[in-house]
Design a protein around this nucleic acid. Structure first.
Length: 300
DNA sequence: GGTAGACCTGGACGC
DNA sequence: GCGTCCAGGTCTACC
């Protein structure tokens, strides 16, 4: 069955899919031209079902499921997609600011800014942990292994991202050997156990009223989450005050602004300070602008 | 508060 | 095929 979901005026599905690497980490996937997002969703917390999303018109996206969904499941899938695709977040202030800044006028035309996120904060945090201190190829391996070993199987044979409970009963030794997570293994286990026992309420972070600095400190208090990971997690929570500089961004910044000459992170941070609470998003869009090159001609 | 070394894996490279 | 080196963030101990 296929049903449609209304989207905001400036929404662009392709830009959201390509906003960062989540679209290729299991259980997400996309088609070759990055126009369709495939994912496994648990409507009402139930069994995972495969869903694909594509955009045929500016006003709506088409949501397709192989099976017929009852109204409550359809409603739940819609709610999950609204959160994953950031449909309910207001970017009008960001777009006004982007038009004031030279070098960012393409942003609104591209419908860029909405960063794809997982159905749960737990999934976002665990995946972010798997991006630290390794190649992207290894991140893909670790996340795929987490799904394969701990995730419930969906109707199409793919595995959903595991719940905290599914990992909590495991052992550090098993995670090292089967997930290939190395020294991250105790951190993964601790996070899953703390989330499963409600010692930490990760899911409340998306609605948190804490000041951003305080939320950043809470996110950073998770073992295995340092400044880079915490800054990126905050972006997925809708807070863009931190740049979350990693080696790739650093290199890209030097290429764009210093002729390849290395500078300190403080130097980079000072450059984006005038962009206020949106600086993390401006920074990310600037260093990843090349990703949009294929579509840019249509936007300019 | 700042710094050094350890952590673990996969890829690149030389033999 | 094997061994060595390096890159990639975070944690911990130490100054």
């Amino acid at each position: 069955m296929t049903f449609s979901l209304r989207v905001p005026a400036n929404f662009n599905l392709r830009s959201t899919i390509t906003s960062h690497g989540w679209c290729v980490l299991a259980p997400f996937s996309s088609d070759r031209d990055l126009g369709t997002l495939r994912l496994l969703l648990r409507p009402n917390g139930g069994k995972p079902i495969p869903v694909s999303v594509s955009q045929k018109t500016a006003a709506a996206i088409a949501v397709t499921s192989e099976s017929t969904l009852p109204a409550s499941a359809q409603n739940s899938v819609s709610q999950l997609l609204r959160s994953i695709l950031r449909l309910d977040e207001d970017y009008s202030e960001f777009y006004v600011e982007s038009k004031r800044q030279s070098g960012y006028r393409w942003v609104e035309r591209a419908g860029a800014g909405r960063l794809l996120r997982a159905p749960t904060v737990f999934e976002d945090v665990l995946k972010m942990m798997c991006t630290t201190n390794c190649s992207w190829a290894l991140t893909e391996v670790m996340v795929a292994n987490l799904c394969r070993r701990f995730g419930e199987e969906g109707e199409d044979g793919r595995h959903a991202f595991p719940t905290p409970e599914a990992i909590a009963d495991s052992t550090e030794k098993y995670i090292r050997k089967e997930i290939r997570a190395g020294y991250r293994s105790p951190y993964i286990l601790e996070l899953a156990r703390n989330a499963a026992s409600r010692k930490i309420d990760l899911e409340s972070w998306r609605q948190s009223s804490l000041p951003t600095q305080q939320l950043y400190e809470e996110v950073g208090s998770v073992k295995g989450i340092g400044p880079y990971a915490a800054g990126n997690i905050l972006k997925l929570l809708g807070r863009y005050d931190y740049l979350a500089i990693d080696s790739w961004c650093r290199k890209k910044f030097f290429e764009l602004h210093t002729g390849g000459k290395k500078r300190t992170d403080k130097f980079i941070e000072r450059r984006y300070e005038p962009l206020g609470k949106w600086r993390g998003l401006f920074f990310w869009l600037e260093v990843t602008k090349d990703w949009y090159n294929g579509q840019k001609a249509a936007w300019d």
